[in-house]
Design a binder for these strands. Structure first.
Lengths: 214, 214
DNA sequence: GTCTATATCTGGATAGAC
DNA sequence: GTCTATCCAGATATAGAC
């Protein structure tokens, strides 16, 4: 059973995500959040103590999905399959969590003043892990000598842009919102740039080769 | 000769760029802008009427450089040279106009509420021109069939990220700021992804071929 | 737990002296 | 043209009735 408490907190969180994504932290009014949630303003303060607290909860909600997107890097795998899965996950986050994604982007853009040192460290550690993973592939001759840092920056940017700069994308494409095929095209394009751009072998290892690895 | 007026306007504009880039429009206090410019607050209002007006001037200052970056698309040229020049220009803007770049990014992220219809139209027209230019190259068999819209989104994102998400880049690389070689590596990486990713021929046409084109 | 009414404070903007 | 002192709108946050 869902209590009124849980329901209202969820309504407020959802409304807050959208407002913060749309206007930014400072420009967002708690009264607008309350109105969008269909609740009186003091309820916002009752459930979440302060505007900043509420903001931090929205921000926190995106950390776990972001870390989860790096899962392909956390198990053994060949460059093609890991990078493809990673790009797909990142695009999925942009599509399915567009508001929290934007809040996160805005937060990073302003120097991450609300991220806790622990969150910063978690994200940074994962990023460094991914980068060293790419460096290893380069050392093993599995891909071209591309600067792994800059490669990661390009992948992040290219995938995040579908959430962060949706207005620009709508304006240029002339579409109000992108459909399944548009997101598939995005994944295809970014994947192609990365795979071909890094000279990565796309052929699947044969059964015998797979067995011989064991 | 530079009048006091010009000097003060310049000081205020520079301070405003930094503050708006750092905190965003709503979170920026005019008193902080004045303080950073080394002038009393009413001077800000004397020279620029309102906070919003000042913000619009900062925003406007980046439009022309952004349009100018598309110059390679506005004259005949082969894919490799045009795209290379474009990527280099975009990275240069991120490096040389980091504050205005960030202000622009933030503006776009929130749906461009302060951009005039004319500015929107100018930017959009240029974007569409660039995209149709890429489509023509594809039709002519000069590059692979990559969706031109998504290719442009990736190039914008990958180049803008050096201004917008400088905090992330500093955190991950462990460097306070990037040097010449870092920016060269960025250009090299993005260029490689685009050129190789789109199967673009990099060989320079021979003198005879160049003549035969005339 | 919920909401009306209100306190309090921040920050954009300006009047008016110099 | 410049700046001190001040006004006041608007937003966060809460007291206290229900």
């Amino acid at each position: 059973m869902t209590s009124i408490r849980e329901r209202n907190q969820e309504l407020i969180l959802r409304a807050a995500s959208e407002e913060f994504a749309d206007k930014g932290f400072a420009a967002t009014k708690t009264s607008d959040i309350a109105a969008k949630a269909g609740l009186p303003k003091p309820n916002v303060y009752y459930y979440f103590k302060s505007k900043e607290n509420l903001y931090r909860e929205v921000l926190e909600s995106i950390i776990e999905p972001l870390l989860a997107a790096s899962a392909p890097f956390n198990q053994p795998g060949r460059p093609a399959e890991v990078l493809k899965a990673y790009i797909r996950s990142k695009i999925r986050i942009s599509r399915e969590l567009p508001f929290a994604s934007k809040v996160f982007a805005s937060e990073i853009m302003h120097g991450a003043p609300h991220l806790s040192p622990e969150q910063t460290e978690q994200l940074n550690a994962q990023a460094k892990h991914n980068i060293s993973c790419i460096q290893r592939w380069i050392d093993q001759g599995l891909m071209a000598k591309v600067d792994p840092h800059h490669l990661m920056f390009s992948i992040w940017a290219a995938t995040q842009t579908y959430a962060d700069f949706d207005w620009q994308i709508s304006t240029v494409t002339g579409k109000g919102s992108l459909d399944d095929e548009d997101y598939e095209a995005a994944v295809r394009t970014i994947t192609r740039l990365v795979i071909k751009g890094c000279d990565i072998d796309e052929t699947v290892p044969s059964a015998s080769e797979q067995v011989s690895n064991a």
